[in-house]
């Protein structure tokens, strides 16, 4: 007993003893994931705040999480499945489309949340210190909740159409992680830029829309001409969504080269993004 008290005191003293040097920082600085981990409670509380605020004073509350994807799916099925008769690799179109809409909705929400997060939380940035990455990071986590609920809807649909997930299903978390990293990578670029250039807020809805059509959500990637495939697979979300379809429905062609090119592009966005964000964050409080 006395031991544990002692060790507690020791760590407290050690904590007090830390010397912080504040000086003009120049150039590139390390990302400091360790410090980010120390602030995990703040991240979870910010996620909680956003979720609670989003559903405060609504009659349907959490039910909206079901309603939104269901309505979208119905519209897309009518327009693209029934009217435009877009092929769907032999899978019922609603299922074909919804298995892609699911990760895409998460991605779009996370990207938009992350890229607007710094400006939306400027009252925090100008008044309190914490690692600034906490803010876009917490914007990534909230939409996971909706993603989880929509997944239940998808499982119900799969039951209805009697489609059995493939063994590749165990790779789903990996594809989800890839989608998260893509959203985070793009999100931190946009959020850091939005501190100086509010143009980002105007541009990013268009960007997301273009990205949506460059991703095989409404159509199978087999519609893309062979000669353009290499460019197509440079879109990390194309890899993520093909991965989802492959793992859940067993369709599509998931090649290693495709996953690798998605991964590479994703990392090329994410890693420099982190460093640029860290480099720009010292001026956030002055510029936002």
């Amino acid at each position: 007993m006395s031991h544990s008290i002692n060790s507690g005191q020791v760590s407290r003293v050690a904590c007090e003893d830390t010397v912080v040097h504040l000086c003009p920082s120049r150039g590139w600085v390390p990302i400091q994931l360790r410090e980010l981990w120390d602030y995990r409670e703040l991240i979870s509380l910010l996620v909680w705040r956003d979720l609670k605020a989003a559903h405060a004073q609504t009659v349907l509350g959490v039910a909206w999480v079901f309603v939104k994807p269901a309505v979208l799916m119905t519209i897309f099925t009518i327009v693209f499945g029934l009217l435009a008769k877009i092929p769907s690799d032999g899978i019922p179109y609603p299922l074909f489309m919804f298995s892609a809409l699911l990760p895409w909705q998460y991605f779009a929400r996370a990207l938009s949340g992350a890229s607007t997060s710094l400006v939306a939380n400027q009252h925090l940035i100008t008044k309190v210190y914490f690692p600034r990455l906490v803010i876009p990071l917490s914007a990534m986590v909230g939409p996971l909740f909706e993603f989880g609920i929509s997944t239940l809807l998808l499982l119900l649909m799969m039951g209805f159409y009697e489609v059995v997930p493939t063994r590749g299903m165990w790779l789903l978390p990996m594809f989800l992680l890839m989608g998260m990293c893509t959203a985070f990578g793009a999100g931190i670029w946009l959020s850091a830029l939005s501190v100086r250039f509010r143009d980002v807020a105007h541009a990013h809805p268009f960007m997301t829309q273009i990205w949506f059509f460059a991703t095989p959500v409404l159509y199978p990637s087999s519609l893309v001409p062979e000669s353009w495939r290499w460019l197509y697979w440079m879109n990390p979300m194309a890899g993520v969504i093909e991965g989802f379809r492959w793992a859940l429905l067993g369709t599509g062609r998931l090649s290693v080269s495709m996953v690798v090119s998605s991964l590479v592009v994703m990392l090329v966005m994410l890693v420099p993004g982190l460093y640029v964000f860290r480099r720009m964050e010292r001026t956030f409080a002055d510029r936002v």
Binding site: V20, L22, C23, P24, V128, Y129, R282
Partner: peptide, 9 residues
């Protein structure tokens, strides 16, 4: 919250 331009603490 913000960095000094010169000097250190």
């Amino acid at each position: 919250i913000t960095d000094p331009t010169e000097g250190h603490v």
